[in-house]
Each structure stands twice: as C-alpha cells, then as structure tokens.
Amino acid sequence: MLSQFNQFLLNFSLLITSLLFAFLPLRHIKRISPTSPIRIRLIVGVIAGLISVLLVLNSVTYDGAKVDLRLVALVTAFYYGGWVSGGITMVAIIGARFIITPPGAYEGLILTALICSALLVTASVYRRFASHTLKDYLILIAIGIGYSLPALYLLTETFTRFLEISLVYIIFILLGGYVTYRFLQELRKHFQFVQMQQELALTDGLTNLANRRKLDETLASYDKDGFAFSVLIVDIDFFKSVNDTYGHDGGDVVLRQLSHLLEHCCPDKAMVGRYGGEEFVLLLPDMPLKEAVRLGETIRSACADQHFVFSTYPAFHVTLSIGVAASDQAATSFEVVQKADQSLYQAKQTGRNKVVAYSEVD
C-alpha cells in the first residue's frame, strides 16, 4: 500500500502544479462559471483536459485498473465551465485512457467512458438543485467515487486487493478535490488582489480617474501603435480662491464634481485623468483637432453653468481654461501634451474661461 500511496502523492503534486501554471492565462477573469462566454469555457475545458491527460498518463497501475485523480479534473471542469468544459475534459480523459490501454484489454477504457458520462449527466441534474459551494463540489467528487468503485472492483483480482487500492483512492480523491477547490479559490483571490493593487497604482485616489502614471503609459502606447489622437488640458480658474473660501474639503468637492462632468461629456474611448492639482488631461483617440475644440467648448460651457455645492455654503460656479492640441501637430505624444499646455497658458493669459487650440497660438 505504501507504494500506491507514494504514486498517488506524485499524481496529486502533478495536479496542483499543473493547476498553478495552466490557469495563469485566466487570472484577469473575475469569475468563471457555466454562463461565461463560450470562449472562456472552451479554454477551461482544454486546460482541464490537458491536466487530466497528464494525470492519466501518470496513473497508478493496480491489476487491471488505472487509478489517478482524473475525476478531480473532470468535476472541476464541469463545476466552472458546465457541459462545454466537462465534455472537452471527458474526451481528453477517454483519449488518454485509450493511449495507455493494451490491445484487446478494453474493459477499463469502456468503464472510464461510462463513469465520465454518468458523472456529467448526474452533475448536470444535481446542479439544478445546488448552489456554487465547496459542499456541492465535494458531493460531485463523492458521486464520481461512487461510480468508480464498482469499476475498481471489476478490474482488481481479489476483494482484498480492491480494499487496498480503494482506501487510498478515496482518501486521495477527496483530498485532491478539497485542495483543488481551495487552491483555485485562493488563487482567484490573489489574482484579484494583485489586479486591484495595479489599478490603485494607476488611479487618482480623490477622483478615481487615471493618474499621471496611467496617462503617461497610455501616451507611450499611442506612440508605439501610431494612434491619431487629440489632447485637452483642463485647468480650473482661480482654484486657489476656491480653497481659500471653502477650505481644502470644498476644493476636493469641486475636483470630484468636475471629474464626473468630464467623464459624462467625453466619448467612451476617451481617457480622463488628473494630471495633478486642479489640472486634468483628456486623451481622445481618433478625434481631430476641430472636433476636440468643440468638445472643449461643450465641457467649458457645462462647467460654467453647473452649480457646485459644498456643505451649507450657497451654490457657486467655477470656470475652466482649456488647451487643445492634436497628434498631427507634433512628432511624439508627449510633445502633443506640451503644445496643449502651451495653449492652456495662452488661454490663461488672454482672459481665462476659454478654449484655445494650438493652431491659434502665435
């Protein structure tokens, strides 16, 4: 029995290691379920199928039986991807079992096909009355064990031999199922945490807009891909007086309300970011200069008409100065930003509350 135990331990290690590397491509998907897009479920099925093939090819040979953790891969595929993923994994298991089956000894292959089919049918019925929990996952594993034990009995030479292998088999299948479920749950939490930290590193904490780092990364990608775009640099006029009158809390309220206005006015493809202080940058892909100027006028007018409210103070207004430039006016994206900044300076020097395009600068 110790030999079988050691072989199962190797099978178990192969399962966990394969899961770690195989599911890395899916780390950015928040949740995988039987209702996920078909492409995702196909990928899950292929991954689980490849893992099951590795498990079958490294199975424990006991009399006429080939024992391994393939059921864990099959249940996992169905649990996360439904019939699509489970079906792909079942085909992979049957194919791998066929490869290692000696000519003429097809009893194990036939039993494998029957067990996998019965498990998927039972799982599809059970899922209608179950929730997506660890208990339900382990029940499906237990059902698979229940279907496998009669096959083990038929393929082993004596009842004593059946008891020897079945005990180790039950322990490792249940343990493998539990560890696989917990491992995938913790792996998903870890990926979500890393993704959240990455988003926080690229997000302005006050306005939840893109921060300067994110804007600079996007500008660099525009250079790399050769995108045509325009830039609006938006600055709040006399923002210091807002802070002096209403305090920094009042200034923060203005910044947040303005960020909402900018997001509302901009097209979906645009990126709105806070460049620092009271200055905002809008990156507008595939938008020519004239259209960007019109958008700037829309934003300026909307802000001038908006009532800003803070605490018990009466509603008040703020105005914006906006500089505009386009990518066909400069060699690099960062030069476009510099030219938009020059236009903003011109707007400030010529009376504020206006939009100035770079082509208008003398």
Rank of each mutant, 00 (worst) to 15 (best):
F183Q: 12
Q198S: 08
T156P: 07
R188H: 08
V231R: 00
I115T: 11
D204Y: 05
R128G: 12
D223L: 04
K214H: 08
A113T: 10
L154H: 14
L184A: 13
V125K: 01
A130F: 15
V231F: 00
H132W: 15
R127D: 07
I233N: 10
Q192C: 04
T207P: 00
A96M: 06
F183Y: 13
N211M: 07
L120Q: 10
L202A: 05
T133K: 11
D204H: 05
G176N: 10
Q197P: 06
E107K: 15
L109C: 07
L154D: 14
F238W: 12
A130Q: 13
S148Y: 02
D136H: 15
L187Y: 14
D223F: 02
A151C: 00
I110P: 05
N211W: 05
L209I: 07
L200Q: 08
E217S: 11
K240W: 07
F98H: 09
L154T: 12
H190S: 14
A118S: 03
G176I: 12
T160N: 04
R182L: 08
L152K: 03
I139R: 01
Y126R: 13
V168S: 13
T180L: 01
P102H: 05
E157L: 15
L202Y: 02
T160Y: 04
L140A: 09
K135A: 15
T218H: 06
G176E: 14
I173P: 02
A118D: 02
L140N: 11
H190N: 15
F191L: 12
Y178H: 08
Q198D: 13
L155A: 00
T218V: 11
K224S: 06
A228I: 10
Q198T: 10
L219Q: 06
K240M: 07
R213G: 08
Q192P: 02
G104T: 11
V231S: 03
E164N: 02
L154N: 14
P150L: 12
S117G: 14
P102N: 09
I236H: 03
T133L: 08
A210R: 11
R127K: 09
R188N: 10
L134P: 01
F238C: 13
A130T: 09
I173A: 12
M196L: 09
S166R: 03
G108M: 04
D225T: 14
S166Q: 05
F159S: 13
A210Y: 14
G226R: 11
Q198E: 12
F162W: 00
G226E: 11
K135M: 10
I115Q: 04
L202T: 01
L163Q: 08
